[in-house]
Every structure is written in structure tokens, then in C-alpha cells.
């Protein structure tokens, strides 16, 4: 039986009582490269964070490989937005990639030679091996993104959640990343990518999740990438939803 890498039911998130995601139902099949698209403030990053429990869900549930996130966490790799970390932190490229192995090591386990070899292989794959000893603040945006990607590879996960990996990277890096993602997919991995560029979204992904506070559509790119659905996602018909959300917030204060 095929496993379902990710399933959410009625997932609802509110920041400070202000709803940002409304009842999201998805079932992501295995071995797909999925793009999450939608306008600014549509809750794309929030969806990923809610799946991982970084922001608490106010309703609904999430299952990762048929289990709670905490139990399935070891099979999930995460690439945060590049700006979300402090790049002046005193670690070098190798240290960052090795962090990807920490989940496998447990709290006290020592970093073994095999872990280093895996980390090196992953760095090599993204073309960053020569920079292994470089302090992370001395990297360009594209290089930083590659390091994050190498770290995700080192996690050896089955499901990857990536938050805007193409923001602020050069064209070469973007091409390299997408090639890598396709390779991962071919090995049966499932990858969710938050993406903000519509034209490339059509060519990059097998499946698309159209999101604007609630799930507008989820399906194969060919079926979902239609004028009508995109209009619905980006159009103004849903403004009442956010207006009402604001009223609810005001009333509850």
C-alpha cells in the first residue's frame, strides 16, 4: 500500500486570533514535486510552519506518513526562508550541513565519520564542497541557499518542506536547485515548495496548491493552472474573508 506522506484535515491557523489559514484539506501523494502558490499574505509559509508545528494550529490535524508530526519528524526535511536565520552565527558551511544529521544522531550521539562523508557528498552535490570551511556570512545569497539545500539532503528525508528556496538566488542556482529537486522526486521523495513566481511555477512543478487563506485548488499542474482558478486565487472575491477575520479579531480583543 502506498503511504501518504502528508495529509491535513481542516487545518486552521490564527495569529493573535486573526485567522490566516482556513480549513485546509490536502492529501499529498508520494513522489510528487508540489508548488504552493498564492498572493502575498495568503498563508503559504504559515501552512508549512503549521504542518511542522512551528506555529500552533487552532483547528484540524496534520498527519505525516500516517502519524503525528512528532513521530514522523525524522522523515521530514526542512528548508526555512533564507532570511529567517542569522547568517553571522559563528559556524561554517560544514557545521550547518552536519546539523542535518543531528536528527539521526539523537541528543548525545557523536558525529561519526560516515556522517561527515554524507555531509561532504551532499555539499558536493550542490557544488559547495570547496566552501566547506567557509564561515557562512561570507557566502552569496545563492550559495547560502545551496548550503541549506545540502543540509536538507543530509537529513535523508522522505518528505521535504521548502520555504521560498528561489528567493534572492541567481539563475544558475535556481536551475541547479530545480534539477536537484527533480532528481529527488525521481527517487520517490515528496517535495513541497513555497513559490511566488507564477510563470515558472507552471513549468517547475507536477502539482500545484493554490492558496489564499484557504485552499482554492490542489491537483496536477495541467488541471489546476487555469485562468479561472488563478483568478479566484489572486482575485479580490475573497477580500470579505480577511475583512471578516479582522472584525472577529476586533470583537475578541
Amino acid at each position: 500500500m502506498q503511504e501518504i506522506p502528508l495529509e491535513t484535515h481542516d487545518l486552521t491557523v490564527a495569529y493573535d486570533k486573526r485567522p490566516v489559514l482556513y480549513g485546509v484539506d490536502v492529501q499529498v501523494p508520494e513522489g510528487k514535486l508540489v508548488g504552493i502558490v498564492g498572493p502575498n499574505g495568503a498563508g503559504k509559509s504559515t501552512l508549512i510552519k503549521a504542518i511542522m508545528g512551528i506555529v500552533p494550529a487552532t483547528g484540524g490535524w496534520v498527519k505525516v506518513f500516517g502519524d503525528s508530526f512528532a513521530k514522523g519528524a525524522k522523515r521530514v526535511g526542512y528548508v526555512p526562508q533564507r532570511e529567517s536565520v542569522d547568517w553571522d552565527f559563528p559556524v561554517n558551511v560544514m557545521d550547518v550541513v552536519l546539523m542535518g544529521r543531528y536528527g539521526k544522531l539523537g541528543l548525545m550521539g557523536r558525529v561519526r565519520k560516515s556522517d561527515r562523508e554524507i555531509a561532504e557528498a551532499c555539499l558536493d552535490k550542490v557544488g559547495m564542497l570547496p566552501y566547506a570551511k567557509r564561515q557562512i556570512s561570507n557566502l552569496s545569497g545563492g550559495q547560502q541557499q545551496r548550503v541549506f539545500l545540502a543540509r536538507a539532503l543530509a537529513q535523508e528525508s522522505d518528505l521535504y518542506l521548502m520555504d521560498e528556496p528561489f528567493v534572492g538566488v541567481d539563475a544558475a542556482t535556481e536551475a541547479a536547485i530545480i534539477e536537484l529537486l527533480r532528481e529527488l522526486k525521481d527517487r520517490g521523495k515528496t517535495i513541497l515548495v513555497v513559490h511566488h513566481d507564477l510563470p515558472t511555477a507552471q513549468t517547475y512543478f507536477d502539482m500545484l496548491m493554490l492558496l489564499n487563506m484557504r485552499l482554492v485548488a490542489f491537483g496536477p499542474t495541467k488541471e489546476v493552472f487555469t485562468q479561472e482558478l488563478l483568478q479566484k486565487t489572486y482575485g479580490g472575491r475573497l477580500t470579505i474573508l480577511s475583512e471578516v477575520a479582522n472584525t472577529v479579531l476586533k470583537e475578541s480583543k
Binding site: M52, G53, I54, A73, V76, S84, V91, V96, M99, G103
Partner: peptide
């Protein structure tokens, strides 16, 4: 855990 949670709380969360 101290380093990971200081550098990248999201990753810390994802590795349990």
C-alpha cells in the same frame, strides 16, 4: 541542541 535551536529554530523543530 543549543546551537541548532539558536541558529535555526525551524530545523530544531523538524529534527524533533
Amino acid at each position: 541542541p543549543l546551537v541548532v535551536s539558536s541558529f535555526d529554530p525551524g530545523l530544531a523543530r523538524s529534527i524533533g
